[in-house]
Design a binder for these strands. Structure first.
Lengths: 363, 363
DNA sequence: TGTTGGCACTCTTGCCTTTCGAGTGCTAAT
DNA sequence: ATTAGCACTCGAAAGGCAAGAGTGCCAACA
């Protein structure tokens, strides 16, 4: 059975209204608001059918209607009108993006903070990384007992470590190690750093003090750290301003899950393209803790096969349209700045593509 | 008028009990618990006097007693018995401390996370820095359009930046710049980097492409960033498990203040020595938002005049003894690992020194 | 057949009253 | 100085009542 045009309008009105007020919305309110020229009684009939069809529900017999996850899904997929961001908001996003572009890890925390401030929901940013290799290896001699290891990774981030030694090392030795590592340890992934490789390097450098293994250990740790997705969450406290989280227990549970670095993206579901926004509504989330929250995710291209993700978490009654638009803009901006340079031209005005529910089962 | 021995015992019992239960404690409960052989009626008399003296108050006439800030102060200064941490807890702290010791900024987030987990309160860590200078300056040539700036600071942290250029630069130029910066920009503070200095360096390097100013800008930004205290907070959500923050508005206000990087340490009050724990009870805090919370602070020596601070925030009814002990241990461990090496020997068993209220006005 | 006004019905919310009990303060006895 | 006893106070929980919002349904109507 297909859904009539008027039903769609009514459904949209219900969702819109509910998103704003957080209170069950009644037939009268809709009659007054939505510009369709019919009376509350008519609306009531329609509403009853929408309930039957599963798009709406009522908390109790004599209350207004509230959208079901399925209702939200319909709203997100077909009904909601794209929110036009004001020029100021667009400006603001770009301005802030331009400000800081340090190493990636730093950016990630900034990104999540920014997303959170912009949307007024808790936001979390993370990067998923393809295999990373070392592009360059340098060892800087500071003094006889101190040196700095600097590695540049294939994703263009640079890591360093200061090493203090209990013994003295001379500069030629450092030089030797530096060039050996630069030739032997670049372009390979973590699991290609074998004991064999380390041993041969050690011998070649004539290193009897175990320096080689210290340096190799750093290489390994850098590579393995880059492999686990870095994640950063901020603005958890904004949850508390949402009426649905006035119950401290509920809020606590969700916040605990989030600060625990809880995973947002359902496993096995990858973001297919950049500039695509994905919406996960209530029970569509896999994590038990998110079953009655919604998640909006955008992904961006951080260069060198690195994919970044920005996500925002809120109650199912969240402002999908505005948030999706903002995230999309943010992601596009990041892609442009971090990505391989093949991004869109200066003025960011991407199209907003919203990807629907993956599994079409609605339980 | 001095306070009798028995009154002290009773006061201690009230505080202890209230810390556990979060409910006003009555005369009967005390008579049962505290081992002093007298009946509830006697206790009532004493309680009435303690109220008069300002150590206790009652929410309403027919309720039990609750400690006032002044009562807590007395408790913290004289009454509370040092909590013995179990061996496991001590182990746990040390084990975790040993795990990660990367660059300072990284540690700071770990430290706050650790403190929060340990105490089950929101915790925040920050470093206050004396003037930082650059100790070493290196420029690594990657290719004609790319180089890496590496600076080592006087506090032994190392910062780097990858620079992409629109124009080509040859290696000798980089070399030249590297050694010029290494001699001219080391050992000086941010405000000693004058346009004059930059200009003369530029001329000496024969740099016509503005490289010098890019590099100098990085030096300035690193130095100025090191100057503002880095701070990191975690575990805000733990507030919600405290009954006094069941009111979402209250919780939201405080959490907002905290995540805003709100300052904890009253201005002008410096931690005098390491291994010293400071307790600020309710109205003793300067920030309006903290007026009915308590803050426990410990400071540690992070080497090179850098002082780190760990703080924990909770309701006035917080477990002062346990938290103070844990923070003290944590701070001592950090001092030992980060500090100038003149710390205490391996086994950490520091004395717990609790510093009292600074201004002795109790309003 | 779709739409509308009207009306009875339902269920929540807020408010008031009552009851219950924990805890106090006071007094008189030890 | 301590204690037992007792009347008193006050908040928290439980019940009851009225108001209001919103529905469902029916009968009338275009």
């Amino acid at each position: 059975m297909s859904i009539s045009e008027r039903k769609k309008k009514i459904l949209a009105a219900v969702v819109d209204e509910y998103i704003q007020t957080a209170e069950p919305v009644g037939s009268k309110a809709i009659a007054a608001k939505a510009g369709l020229g019919c009376s509350s009684a008519t609306i009531r009939n329609e509403l009853a059918e929408l309930v039957n069809m599963g798009y709406l529900e009522q908390p109790h017999t004599s209350a207004g209607r509230v959208p079901t996850p399925m209702g939200y899904r319909m709203y997100v997929n077909e009904l909601m009108e794209k929110q036009k961001l004001s020029l100021e908001e667009t400006e603001e996003i770009n301005r802030r993006l331009n400000r800081r572009l340090q190493e990636l890890d730093d950016t990630i925390s900034d990104v999540s903070r920014l997303a959170s401030q912009l949307t007024n929901y808790p936001a979390l940013a993370l990067t998923t990384q393809a295999a990373v290799t070392i592009k360059r290896f340098d060892i800087i001699y500071v003094d006889a007992n101190t040196f700095i290891i600097v590695v540049m990774l294939s994703n263009n981030s640079v890591k360093n470590k200061l090493v203090h030694l209990p013994v003295s090392v001379d500069q030629p030795m450092m030089q030797r190690l530096s060039s050996l590592f630069n030739s032997g340890f670049t372009g390979i992934t973590e699991d290609q750093i074998t004991p064999l490789l380390i041993n041969s390097t050690e011998r070649a450098a004539d290193d009897t003090m175990g320096l080689t293994s210290v340096i190799a250990a750093f290489a390994i740790s850098v590579l393995s750290e880059s492999k686990v997705p870095a994640s950063f969450i901020s603005g958890e406290n904004r949850l508390l301003s949402q009426p649905e989280f006035r119950d401290p227990d509920k809020a606590h549970k969700l916040m605990g899950y989030l600060s625990g670095g809880g995973y947002i993206l359902p496993p096995g579901v990858s973001m297919s393209g950049p500039n695509e926004v994905k919406v996960l509504i209530g029970p569509e989330n896999v994590a038990e803790e998110l079953k009655d929250s919604s998640v909006i995710i955008a992904s961006y291209d951080a260069g060198d096969n690195t994919r970044g993700i920005i996500g925002v978490v809120g109650p199912t009654r969240m402002d999908y349209s505005a948030v999706a638009e903002k995230l999309s803009l943010l992601a596009a901006g990041l892609s442009q700045r971090l990505g391989g340079g093949e991004g869109p031209p200066e003025g960011i005005h991407n199209k907003l593509i919203i990807k629907g529910d993956i599994s079409n089962e609605q339980r």
